[in-house]
């Protein structure tokens, strides 16, 4: 594969917020003393009356977003992943997801975080959120996204602004390789086949989509045709694309920067086991916390948890032998 073009999700998020802010005057943005880091402060400069920095007070951040939303605003609340689902789950559940105005499900709040997963790097295990998908997907009315690149970030930010209801979107800290084209469509509950294949499937999300594509290339050299899915929409999950992959390729490897319990891999397993059971292997944090790693060492940290192209290819090969 060619060397990837690396782009910054937070910059893209900032740009998209300003765009939706111009298009819709009901968009408001809230932050919790991480607005320069998340780059939401750009929105604040454009729309000072619609931007609120509540300080290091995530519970307040979440509930205030709900108060604004119940009054007709479209709230985007952002900080690091570790401090939102990891810290304010009660407020997320009881103030955003649960309150349902007549005919609606939940309030119109978009929780968008950065610094998801292990690739946070140097800040260490205390800052590496590997539980957020499990937490967020178990809460009724929430929809959960993990974008693979900045094109996804931009399109999903626009989608969330126009679609009523609570959403959670988790971005990565570091620059991410572009995997999608500008013309790629993103629909709620629809996975994307980023590479077709017939012998096995790797279902990925976030930064692991590019790794999965690299694994597919390795497999191709061994004569194995590997399908790669970007399961950016973890909830709702695309049962159709998964059933098709199960039927047509017979086994599925999942891969994510999240605990293997409760994450995207679990969501895939739940779906496939009900539609067309095939062998599944989940790659991700093996129920253990992360640790510090300088930027250049992040691949080592990921490797410790088996999150490498090489391991994906290896697991896919092994899984083929278990096909029913």
């Amino acid at each position: 594969m060619n060397d990837p073009i690396m782009t910054d999700m937070r910059s893209e998020y900032s740009k998209s917020l300003i765009q939706v802010g111009h298009e819709n005057s009901n968009v408001v943005v809230l932050g919790a003393d991480t607005t320069d880091s998340l780059k939401t402060s750009g929105f604040g400069k454009q729309f000072p009356d619609r931007f609120f920095n509540v300080g290091i007070a995530e519970a307040n951040l979440v509930t205030m977003s709900a108060g604004l939303a119940v009054s007709g605003k479209i709230s985007f609340a952002s900080t690091y992943a570790i401090f939102l689902p990891g810290r304010a789950v009660d407020q997320i559940r009881n103030n955003i997801a649960y309150p349902s105005p007549p005919g609606k499900k939940g309030l119109n709040v978009k929780l968008v975080t950065s610094h998801g997963g292990l690739s946070v790097g140097p800040d260490g295990g205390s800052h590496q959120q590997i539980e957020d998908i499990a937490i967020m997907r178990v809460i009724p009315n929430f929809r959960v996204f993990i974008p693979a690149d900045t094109i996804a970030v931009s399109k999903l930010t626009n989608l969330m602004a126009s679609e009523y209801g609570p959403f959670y979107m988790r971005m990565a800290r570091s620059k991410t390789p572009l995997v999608h084209s500008e013309s790629q469509e993103f629909k709620i509950g629809k996975g994307i086949t980023v590479r077709d294949g017939s012998d096995c499937t790797i279902a990925a999300c976030g930064i692991t989509v590019r790794m999965a594509l690299e694994a597919a290339e390795m497999l191709e050299q061994d004569g194995i045709s590997c399908r790669v899915l970007d399961m950016f929409s973890i909830k709702p999950i695309d049962g159709e694309i998964l059933e098709k992959a199960a039927r047509e390729t017979g086994c599925i490897v999942t891969t994510e920067e999240h605990n293997i319990f409760g994450g995207m891999g679990s969501a895939v397993a739940e779906s496939v086991s009900e539609s067309y059971p095939v062998p599944i292997k989940r790659i991700g944090a093996q129920d253990m916390f992360g640790e510090s790693a300088r930027d250049a060492e992040i691949p080592l940290l990921l490797e410790k948890h088996g999150i490498t192209s090489f391991n994906m290819a290896k697991q896919a090969k092994e899984l083929r032998s278990k096909k029913i």
């Binding site: 609120f52 205030m64 604004l68 939303a69 119940v70």
Partner: peptide, 9 residues
Amino acid sequence: SYSVGIALA
């Protein structure tokens, strides 16, 4: 917190 949100809106 919720009320502050409503008041700001």
